[in-house]
Amino acid sequence: MAGWISLHRKLMDNPIYSNANMLKLWIHCLMKATHTEREQLVGNQMVHLEAGEFVTGRNSLFDEFNKGAKKDEIISSSTLWRWLNRFEEWQMLNIKKTTKFSVVTVINWSDYQGAEQQVNSKWTTDEQQMNNKRTADEQQVNTNNNVNNTNKDNKDNKKEPSHKQVYDEDSEPFILATFFYNQILKNDPKRNKPNLQTWSDDIRKMMEIDKRDKKEIGVLMRWVQQDDFEKANVLSPSKLRSRYTALLLKMNNTRPSNVATFKPPVYERSTTNEQPDDRGRNGEHTSPFGNVRLYK
Rank of each mutant, 00 (worst) to 15 (best):
I16C: 08
V219N: 15
K296P: 00
D153F: 08
V259E: 14
T124G: 05
Q118L: 11
N157D: 11
S78Y: 02
I175T: 08
L185D: 00
S257C: 03
A69D: 10
M251S: 10
R269G: 07
K214T: 03
A177V: 05
N44E: 14
K122N: 08
D111L: 12
V266T: 06
T79A: 14
N273D: 09
N187Q: 06
S270K: 03
M207W: 05
A20L: 14
T105H: 08
K159R: 13
N132W: 07
T271W: 03
N144Q: 12
E39C: 03
K159T: 01
T271D: 12
G43V: 05
K152W: 11
Q117R: 07
Q275S: 13
L220P: 00
N59V: 03
T271G: 04
N108W: 02
M12I: 10
R191Y: 12
S76M: 06
A33K: 06
K70R: 14
V119M: 12
N120F: 10
Y112G: 07
D168A: 14
N291T: 00
D72F: 01
S270T: 01
R241T: 00
T56D: 08
P194N: 10
K193M: 10
D153Q: 15
T98E: 05
L249P: 00
M130G: 06
Q225T: 05
L30E: 09
D170T: 01
S200P: 04
K71G: 06
S76F: 04
T105P: 00
G57H: 06
I203Y: 08
R86C: 01
E208T: 09
N144M: 14
I217G: 09
V106E: 01
P161C: 06
L80D: 08
N192T: 10
R243P: 00
E172Y: 04
S60N: 09
R134C: 04
I95W: 03
R38H: 08
E89H: 09
D188F: 10
T79P: 00
Y17T: 02
T79G: 02
R58D: 07
R255N: 13
T261F: 12
Q45T: 07
L220D: 02
L235G: 04
S121V: 07
K296S: 06
M1C: 12
K250S: 12
Q275H: 13
R279A: 05
A136R: 15
L23E: 06
V103Q: 04
L248E: 13
T36S: 14
P189L: 03
K155M: 14
S78T: 04
N291G: 11
L248F: 05
L23Y: 07
K239H: 07
L93Y: 01
R204I: 00
E284A: 09
D63S: 11
W123F: 09
K70G: 12
T286W: 13
K32H: 08
N195M: 06
N44L: 11
N192R: 15
L176N: 08
R243N: 14
K159D: 03
N282G: 02
Q113E: 13
M207C: 10
N142Y: 08
V55R: 01
D170A: 03
S77K: 13
A260M: 12
V47N: 05
W4V: 10
G68C: 04
L30M: 15
P173A: 10
